[in-house]
Design a protein around this nucleic acid. Sequence first.
DNA 1: TTAGATTTTATCAGTCTTTTCCATTTTCCG
DNA 2: CGGAAAATGGAAAAGACTGATAAAATCTAA
Lengths: 208, 208
Amino acid sequence: MTKEVVPDIVIARLPRYLQCLNLMAKEGLHTVSSGVLAERLGTTAAQIRKDLSYFGGFGKQGSGYPIYSLIEALQEILNLDRIWQVAVVGAGDLGRALTRYQGFPRRGIEIKLLFDVDPKLVGTKVGSITIQHVDYLEKEIQHHGIKIGVLAVPAEYAQLMADRMVEAGIEGILSYAPVSLILPESVHAQHIDPVLQLQTMMYYLGED
Amino acid sequence: MTKEVVPDIVIARLPRYLQCLNLMAKEGLHTVSSGVLAERLGTTAAQIRKDLSYFGGFGKQGSGYPIYSLIEALQEILNLDRIWQVAVVGAGDLGRALTRYQGFPRRGIEIKLLFDVDPKLVGTKVGSITIQHVDYLEKEIQHHGIKIGVLAVPAEYAQLMADRMVEAGIEGILSYAPVSLILPESVHAQHIDPVLQLQTMMYYLGED
DNA sequence: TTAGATTTTATCAGTCTTTTCCATTTTCCG
DNA sequence: CGGAAAATGGAAAAGACTGATAAAATCTAA
């Protein structure tokens, strides 16, 4: 009866399962066993079964998991059964590349707003989006009721922009800025920093 | 005497500590306690102390950690006390943005090679790097003895290019392609996929 | 229809991580 | 100088996650 809490680390793996399942569906498969899925994902069958079992029994003993209904179930669990609108702050190389990235619309993510401070950029378009001045950040985010923000600004402005987004009602931030952000507990943050990931790698590559 | 194994997850946190320490050094601080560092990083003091203690006692009771020498120690642990050369495969929006990214040279990462298949791109320059045809991938990587590759190609070519990089001697791959790669155990791989991170977030944002 | 192979599910044991506790050392301040 | 406060580092406890095992269900083929 008690709504058992699903560990964060399990949630973080579900999108990867979904990605792989979508690929398999495109290949024309209808059913997959945890063993096969594990091999494609580089993990273990037991882990996949355990992870999925947090949400109920999707599989059929003897045959495995029906791909289509598992995809649907995961999409519902992750709340992907709708379009999520996103605001991007920072229209430099990175911000513009993200705004043009076709992988977003293909997977239910719509870049709705794009902001920058540079007056030379404001008013120009990236794809179908017009770059707006950050002065309008709060107003526009509130107006569209956007809950997810992407930070693509230099490190020194990241905390300020994050604070403003939170103030405007943003509840999740994906940051590309190379700094640690200090945010309220209630805001979900994720960081992407290729340098940090490469540095992690260098530890292991060093012994030569 | 037994060389205790440091957990992967600890290694993955060290670059973040280093990033924060560098920032503090720039602010003119000389010493930092685990508590203050933890607050800036959004973690706990105990975890930082435990992580650092895998490598020895860097701190001084009563005052904390001397920032400069801790930075140096971490750089040495992570093998950052030299320039790492990197090859980028894929010169689309993303590959070019990465090649231009100033954060790499600033932190000891040199993009040395950039490849693409598109004959319209081959021969053109991105910053000071000339785009080469992927036909020369193996030869060039071997010639320069490069150990780290960055994948910035469409999903359907990612596995093929990863295989070729491994064949050429690459030991670590940072992939931006939205697929799971199947690689030998000996190759260290990291993935960056903003969609997966956003989807993880959507699970938590969904209850509204 | 039945036997055997396959595969999930649930449970439990084991391992890995994190947190807590505390002794010790250093710093600060009156 | 001396006591209180601050801080580390190690040991141990607690907690979380993963892997293994047994049981049940399904499928396949003869």
